[in-house]
Design a protein around this nucleic acid. Sequence first.
DNA 1: TTTGAAAGTGCGCGGAC
DNA 2: GTCCGCGCACTTTCAAA
Lengths: 155, 155
Amino acid sequence: MSVRIDALDRKILVELQRDASQSLDVIAGNVGSSKTPVWNRIRKLREAGVIGKQTVILDAESLGFEACFFVLIRTSEHEADWQGAFLKALQDRPEVQEAHRLAGDIDYILKVRVKNARAYDAFYQALISEVRVHNVTALLSMEEIKSTTDLPLEG
Amino acid sequence: MSVRIDALDRKILVELQRDASQSLDVIAGNVGSSKTPVWNRIRKLREAGVIGKQTVILDAESLGFEACFFVLIRTSEHEADWQGAFLKALQDRPEVQEAHRLAGDIDYILKVRVKNARAYDAFYQALISEVRVHNVTALLSMEEIKSTTDLPLEG
DNA sequence: TTTGAAAGTGCGCGGAC
DNA sequence: GTCCGCGCACTTTCAAA
């Protein structure tokens, strides 16, 4: 399962994170190697699942997504079937961009991206009608100070 | 500044989000158009900043990033220079994947991705030595249930 | 605004080293 | 393993409808 990843692999990943549209030649130049080895390594990293999907980052605001909420959820239910239903509800809702199960007091945190506060309310009503949750706190983002998908691979 | 985005643009954006490595021909086929118009629209959307950077999503766990924290921050300082210093501190730290200024009780939320709990502590100590914060709560993620960068453009 | 075609570029794979 | 080179597919441009 675990993959051996050396310094050259990491350099390649850094380049791909930075700009996945770069040509093989350019990447090879930037990491101090040449096409074929770089290409083979990328292929292996893809097969191993280290490299996931290739995508573009869209500007949420230009597309009318002007509200972003972090939702803190406490529940009293901890059985497997409840958890399954909750998980499925989250997977099915595209406005949920992130969902984590937490350790401690709060059980789950969600990041929900919607067009406006009304759309959030619609999401919230739909969610609590599908699964029982004990307590919900919504934190409204006023400003996205930073947002990146890059992992700090240099360390 | 604002861009008019029609149904065809949205279809193209959906395709790009789904898989940015698709060839123009394939995208054109999927959205019911042909190469050149699709290409021109993509160019305009890029220039308008609607389409941001093209990247790959890497698997955090295979790369040794096994801890993810959501950090809730309260501060008593609200002056511009403090905010500037805080903002810069966050921008400079690559382990901070997201940072939002919030409305209400809690002032900021961060998403911090690190190799382990010790690395989080190092981050935390470094942060509070740079800027004064009143109160910090860290929520430890046990499981990433869902994670996507896709915006729900169909709605 | 779309179509089609033409030129340039990069990929993916074969070899040899 | 890395380097080199070829065929093919792709991107990007530019006419013309």
